[in-house]
Amino acid sequence: MLRVERRVATAAAIASQGIGGARKERTRQRPRACWLGVPATMMKFLLMVNKQGQTRLAQYFDFKSIEERSALEAEIIRKCLSRTEMQCSFMEHRGLKVVYRRYASLYFIVGFEEGEENELGMLEFIHALVETLDKYFENVCELDIMFNLERAHFIVDEMVMNGCIVDTNKLSVLKPVALLDRIKA
């Protein structure tokens, strides 16, 4: 209901002010999304997206609406796909620094604010994450992550909290996850 009203308002604004006025209106209406007003932390998001642009895992560390998420994922994967092997693994997107690394058909993508993180360190972190997943799933592939979404999330949760790296030691990361499996079994 609210959304419809807003759209009508925008149309009215266009009618009364012309395109320029409407543009201003729109930018004003979009507040900076921020989780409960708390400034975001180091990593902003961690994505696993395949080459077809389908998201396989998405973890955001600051609040984004569903529309913003889909748009962001689509834009970033499009940028990633347009880059060649030879190009570096860093790009800038909407003021954020994006580090990505491709493993087979899956892109691992991390976004953070400029100057908050070491880009090369992030690259190495992605690798550590992949190695951990690999150890758990034994030769991990896209399907493993897709069908075991919750396990993948458990592992990511043990490695990253609120955008900061918790641990990179495979053994201590996998211990709580293994425990869960034992309870379940």
Partner: peptide, 13 residues
Amino acid sequence: KKAALTCIRLFKS
């Protein structure tokens, strides 16, 4: 280790 990172969030809030 987790309590340390939780503190970051608490302090920000």
